[in-house]
Design a protein around this nucleic acid. Structure first.
Lengths: 146, 146
DNA sequence: TATTGTTATACTCTATAACTATA
DNA sequence: TATAGTTATAGAGTATAACAATA
């Protein structure tokens, strides 16, 4: 096992742990991953058309219809008329939806604090720099692959 | 935005890129994520019973039936009789299945080399140390949550 | 003509529950 | 009795294609 492979394996392991934490949130909220992603996007930009949601999620418009149907049924969002385009709907969080969004943000901040709160500032800065470099390299690789 | 949140966001961003790379492999191989995971496990331990596969994947036995059905249909694995237990089957890769497993291992090593191949040894060691610490902290958090 | 969202259809992954064959 | 795997059934996410309403 080479050192570079070890580094990638650790990154993968950390990814799996992050995924496990998301699963925990899904269990507790009774929501599914894709629906939580919808609420997350809503929390970071307010009401949005289904078309824009499809682009943000990188799924088909048909798929968004299904996801929004589910969130409407569970009363986390409503479909509001678009003020100027009568074809479009604005997916808008309800009070319950906003509550989940708040929990999402809190849970995210809590996790960050628990993971890195006691890390010395210099180590954390170095870690972020390495992550940045890796992300940038990755981005270049994916770009080439196109 | 606090520093700890930035660090977690970078970790999440890297996770998403890793996921995107897996998606690319799925497209190229014509296989799905769960089926690729089955082949990955097969590549790291040889023929395995469906029950053990269910445990390794953390899914139900019923689910494994479906995954193996798909891989049998695409001729990546066969169901072989267990030598001593007539209830069990041994999921075994075919030549085509072994080819995908080889590509999987190569692709993994390639990615590691491209991501970290030009990183100075000392920086890489520091990065792995930070990842280890983070993984360990995470493990403790998940343990407590139980 | 182009865009927004839906209906129609199909496939995969996932789960629980009941069942068969074997241990 | 307990275990390995399947059948039956159901829900969620995903996709393509055809369509209606509107821009």
């Amino acid at each position: 096992m080479t050192k570079v492979t070890t580094a990638l394996d650790k990154v993968l392991e950390l990814s799996m742990l992050v995924t496990a934490d998301m699963d925990r949130f899904e269990q507790e909220s009774g929501l599914t991953g894709p629906r939580i992603r919808v609420l997350w996007i809503l929390g970071h930009g307010g009401p949005i058309t289904q078309r824009a949601l499809a682009t943000a999620l990188d799924v088909t418009p048909r798929n968004v219809t299904g996801l929004v149907d589910g969130l409407v049924a569970s009363e986390h969002v409503t479909r509001e008329p678009h003020p100027t385009d009568r074809r479009a709907t604005l997916v808008t969080p309800t009070a319950a939806g906003r509550r989940v969004i708040r929990q999402l943000v809190e849970s995210h901040a809590d996790l960050a604090a628990q993971l890195f709160g006691s890390t010395p500032s210099r180590d954390l800065a170095a870690f972020v720099t390495m992550l940045d470099t890796t992300i940038e390299t990755f981005g270049r690789l994916m770009g080439e692959a196109t």
